[in-house]
Computed example of a mutant assay.
Amino acid sequence: MADLPVRRGSGSSPVSRWTRGFDPFEQMRELMGFDPIEQMGRIIGGGGEPSWNFIPAFEVKETKDSYIFKADLPGVKDDDLDITLTGDRLTISGKRETEQREESDRFYAYERSYGSFSRSFTLPEGVDVEHCNAELKDGVLNLRLPKLPEVQPKRIQVGTSDANKQGKAKA
């Protein structure tokens, strides 16, 4: 916070305010009644209140016995998360609520995103729906969808038959 300019006094002329502790955002707010961060949020969100899209990052992998989904969901509560599996369609949706803002708050950066999200994935056949489990811990969703035993890979042992052994012995 030491790098942030501090505005001192309100009775000085506009020129002296520009020469001391230059804050372009504060100057735009003062001169034009314009808050660039708020306006950008309105443009993106299309409404009065800034709306930033919350798009969580997912990691999806297949192991020999299951499908593993991981998602970064910081600030999402268990109650705000919905996971459904319908046929071969997995849908993960939820929301991250904005924090309470006071009228007197002054933001220097507003980069965190909030809002609702929904992601859907098409799964291959053979998911064991009865044994799926999900855990939300430390802002990371871990979802494990085990495969049915009949679709898991089976190792076939390679060996020699007795007929081949006898044929080699005669030659």
Rank of each mutant, 00 (worst) to 15 (best):
M1Q: 06
A2L: 13
P5R: 05
R7T: 02
R7K: 06
R8Y: 15
S10V: 07
P14R: 08
V15D: 07
R17F: 04
P24R: 09
P24G: 06
P24D: 06
Q27E: 10
Q27V: 12
M28Y: 01
M28Q: 04
M28I: 00
L31D: 10
M32P: 00
G33A: 03
F34S: 07
D35S: 12
D35A: 13
D35F: 06
D35V: 05
P36K: 03
I37R: 01
Q39L: 09
Q39M: 13
Q39A: 12
M40D: 03
R42L: 02
R42G: 02
I43E: 08
I44E: 15
I44M: 15
G45L: 05
G45D: 04
G46D: 08
G47P: 00
G48A: 11
E49K: 11
S51Q: 04
S51F: 01
W52V: 01
N53S: 15
F54C: 03
I55D: 08
I55L: 09
P56G: 05
A57R: 15
F58K: 08
F58A: 06
E59H: 15
V60F: 11
V60W: 06
V60Q: 07
K61F: 14
D65E: 15
S66H: 10
S66N: 12
S66F: 05
S66V: 03
Y67V: 03
Y67P: 01
F69T: 03
A71C: 07
D72E: 15
D72F: 09
D72N: 11
D72V: 07
L73H: 06
P74E: 13
P74T: 15
G75D: 04
V76H: 00
K77P: 01
D78H: 10
D79L: 05
D80M: 03
D80T: 03
L81V: 03
D82A: 07
I83P: 00
T84C: 05
L85G: 00
T86W: 08
T86R: 14
D88K: 14
T91D: 05
T91A: 13
T91L: 06
I92N: 00
G94L: 04
G94C: 09
E97A: 14
E99S: 11
Q100L: 14
R101N: 10
R101K: 13
E102I: 02
E103L: 13
E103I: 13
D105Q: 08
R106E: 04
Y108G: 02
A109M: 02
Y110V: 04
E111V: 02
S113W: 00
Y114A: 01
G115N: 02
S116R: 04
F117V: 03
R119I: 01
R119E: 05
R119V: 04
S120E: 14
S120K: 14
S120N: 14
F121M: 06
P124Y: 10
E125D: 13
E125T: 13
E125N: 12
D128P: 02
D128Y: 06
H131T: 08
H131F: 08
A134H: 01
E135R: 07
E135T: 09
L136N: 00
K137W: 06
K137N: 11
D138V: 07
D138S: 14
N142L: 12
L143D: 00
L145G: 05
E150H: 15
V151D: 08
Q152E: 12
P153S: 10
P153Y: 07
R155P: 02
V158L: 14
G159H: 10
D162T: 09
N164L: 12
N164G: 10
K165V: 13
K165T: 12
A169C: 06
A169K: 14
A169D: 07
A169H: 09
K170C: 01
A171H: 02
